[in-house]
């Protein structure tokens, strides 16, 4: 087992830990905003670490670049979505009002 593989194992493990923490937070946090806080950690940091850990295992450079592209897309979509959800929750409009 080379040093690169050990590094990628550590990164993957940390990413899985962030996913686990995010899902526990989504289950146990008391209100919407704290749940959103937990979710964004799982989204951005968790998937980012897993992508970083998978990059050394990719068969060639093209696949590694595609992995990076996926992470950028998910980060942009996650940030936008979290902002929209939080805005709706702050305004407390529509069916959110209970």
């Amino acid at each position: 087992m080379t040093i690169i593989e050990i590094l990628s194992l550590v990164l993957l493990g940390t990413g899985a830990f962030f996913f686990l923490a995010g899902s526990i937070g989504l289950m146990r946090m008391p209100d919407r905003f704290t749940r959103l806080h937990a979710l964004t950690k799982a989204d951005n940091v968790g998937l980012g670490l897993i992508v970083l850990g998978l990059m050394p295992l990719a068969p060639d450079v093209r696949d590694a670049l595609k992995l990076g592209l996926i992470w950028i897309l998910v980060a942009v979509a996650g940030a936008t979505g979290a902002h929209l959800i939080a805005k709706r929750a702050v305004r407390d409009d529509g069916e959110d009002s209970h």
């Binding site: 995010g22 899902s23 989504l26 959103l36 989204d43 979290a82 709706r88």
Partner: peptide
């Protein structure tokens, strides 16, 4: 519904 959207995102 916010919770549902968050869970769908996760």
């Amino acid at each position: 519904p916010s919770d549902r959207m968050m869970a769908a995102q996760l």
